[in-house]
Design a protein around this nucleic acid. Structure first.
Lengths: 164, 164
DNA sequence: TATTGTTATACTCTATAACTATA
DNA sequence: TATAGTTATAGAGTATAACAATA
């Protein structure tokens, strides 16, 4: 969780005044990278709040969605799909299993691997989170405007795919 | 640092086939929040690479820029401007001072506080990072397209400011 | 009493490398 | 030899709470 960000600062007398002076962000203010980060952090935190009301967090949401959409997915696949190392996923899956949201079954044809599936409780939690996500999306839609949304998402996708 | 993300997964036989099957991202694929995160991570990682070539990281860049643009800024102001708790900033500033990029001076009129300024070495490092950032921005510009850039940044700013 | 910055502590998320058990 | 998943470990980045010095 993150502190609310404020652009104003108090008690700033470095330019010989006694009143508050806004901080100068310099070139940061006009750069895509910086604004991308600020927008993502704000959006992420807002969704964290919605998720917390369900007792979950945004990362769990992505994991549950991927498992729900790809029944029987194996951990290595899941790790590739979410762009995280498989070792990063171990504690996440462990937590979901422990809380009864996901079940693991050994694969008969390859006994090294597990298949992951949502349990009934997992589906229920995913449904709750999906509802929260839709609400969050409606907030974002309101800000972006329906006309620009498609192009906006397309640009984000191209950044993720093409940046080097 | 993060693994490259791949959408394809291998060895997926969960739907009775032997060939590779793309993972289904379900509603994630069309949601702003998710794509915002993916784009930000990709952009951040790309800039991390550029920064690493200078021996720095993106977080240091923002801090150095804020100090450079606001000479004599105090740590509490800096923490407000960057949206982080003051205690999170202590080790960052300590590191910058230790490496000779930033200097701290006690404020005469308020001996609890410090003022932060870049040293000559700090200005030099900031100049190098700024150059790397410009290169990174040119990559982003190429992807976004000059026509859409202004609107894209404006949308990001509004998300950061208005999301709840 | 309130504020500035530090310290102690803890939590989340991530990675690499070495390991096991299988293939 | 190679792969699936775990363990051990580490690092970055963040927060809260308590603290000393000063206001």
């Amino acid at each position: 969780m993150r502190k609310g960000k404020s652009t104003k600062v108090d008690g700033d007398d470095r330019i010989g005044e006694t009143g508050a002076t806004p901080t100068d962000f310099g070139p940061l203010a006009t750069w895509v990278g910086f604004n991308l980060r600020m927008a993502q952090e704000a959006s992420f935190e807002a969704f964290s709040h919605h998720s917390a009301a369900i007792g979950e967090n945004p990362g769990r949401f992505a994991t549950l969605t991927l498992i729900g959409r790809n029944p029987g997915i194996r951990q290595t696949e899941l790790s590739a799909a979410s762009g995280r190392d498989k070792s990063s996923l171990t504690p996440v899956v462990e937590d979901l299993v422990r809380r009864g949201l996901v079940e693991r079954k050994r694969v008969d044809s390859d006994r090294r691997a597990y298949r992951l599936n949502l349990t009934a409780a997992g589906r229920k939690t995913l449904a709750l989170m999906t509802r929260a996500a839709r609400k969050h999306e409606r907030n974002l839609d309101r800000i972006i405007g329906p006309r620009d949304k498609k192009r906006f998402i397309d640009t984000l996708k191209r950044i993720a795919a093409e940046i080097e």
